[in-house]
Amino acid sequence: MKNFELDNFEKIELLLKSKSFDELSEAEREFVYKSISREEYENLFYFYQNINQAKTYTSIEPKMEIKSALDKQFENFKSSNSFFSRKLSIFKVAAVAAACFVLGFGISSIDNIAKDKPENLTDSIIHDTVQVIKYIQLPKQEFFAKVNVSNKPLSLDFPALPKNYYHEKDAILLASQTMKIYNSIKIKHYR
């Protein structure tokens, strides 16, 4: 099919639906001749006429029974329809189920990981350190009696506290400072 015919298809069709060849003006005939001959035009003209006529005589009306059946099915479907089946397809339901499963699995994994995460590790180190510092602040004999080790002096590099000074708050502060040192060492190590 030539480009001209493609571009003017609807224009030619409009002429074919409304005018016989004899009713065309000179300009319209010139226009038609660029695509089809007179004989082709006349064949097409009667063809279109017959289609229009046939279309009128073959039109049918839907029976009431179809609508009644559909109404019943609509009500049945509506009443049996749950929240999920109403709007969600089977694929969407499957996707939501899969998402819930993954989320549940993820939460349990996160919980497990949390036991080993740095914050928890830090807390436990601080706690342990506080216990050690408490013992440091105890009189030497008492400390050694508690830990039940040999009578060696402790060589821990904690900042010195006033003699016999004991306060849990200060011990925690001291432990935090220790943790800072610990973390900076750890960061350097991982770099």
């Binding site: 099919m1 015919e5 493609l6 089809i36 082709e40 063809f47």
Partner: peptide, 15 residues
Amino acid sequence: KSRLFYMNKKLSVSL
């Protein structure tokens, strides 16, 4: 368009 044009030409001749 080209399918319709082709079909119409054929059908109008055969009918």
